Computed example of a mutant assay.
Amino acid sequence: MRLFSVLVLSLWACSFTVRADMPDYRVFPAEGSRLLLWVASERGRAELEVEAAQRLAERGMAVWSLDPVNAYFLPQLPSGMDAVPAQDMADWLRAAQGSGKRVAVYAVSRAAVPVLRAAALLQPGERKRLCVLLMSPNLYTVAEPLAAPDYLDVGDLSGLRVRVLQPRRSAATPWLPGQLDHLAGHGALVDQVILENLREGYWMRETPTEFEIAEGRRLDAMLQRELNDWACI
Rank of each mutant, 00 (worst) to 15 (best):
A57W: 00
A119P: 06
S33G: 14
L36E: 05
E144D: 09
R169P: 02
A30T: 03
R110V: 15
G155L: 04
S5G: 13
D91P: 07
G100E: 02
C14F: 08
A148V: 14
P137N: 05
E31F: 00
S5K: 12
A171Q: 12
A30M: 04
E200V: 11
L93S: 03
K128E: 14
D153R: 09
G60N: 07
A118D: 01
R117C: 09
A172E: 13
W203Y: 12
D91L: 10
N138S: 11
Q54M: 08
D229E: 13
S10G: 13
P145A: 02
S15N: 15
D91T: 11
L176R: 00
E31H: 09
C131R: 04
R102E: 15
L198H: 01
D21R: 13
D91N: 12
A30C: 06
Q123T: 12
F211T: 11
A107H: 07
A62R: 08
V190C: 14
L130H: 03
T17F: 00
L7D: 12
P78F: 06
A112Q: 07
A86W: 05
D156G: 10
R205L: 15
G100F: 00
Y72E: 09
P23K: 01
M135L: 11
A172H: 13
R199D: 01
L176S: 09
E200A: 12
L189R: 09
G100V: 10
L116F: 05
A221H: 04
F16Q: 14
A46T: 06
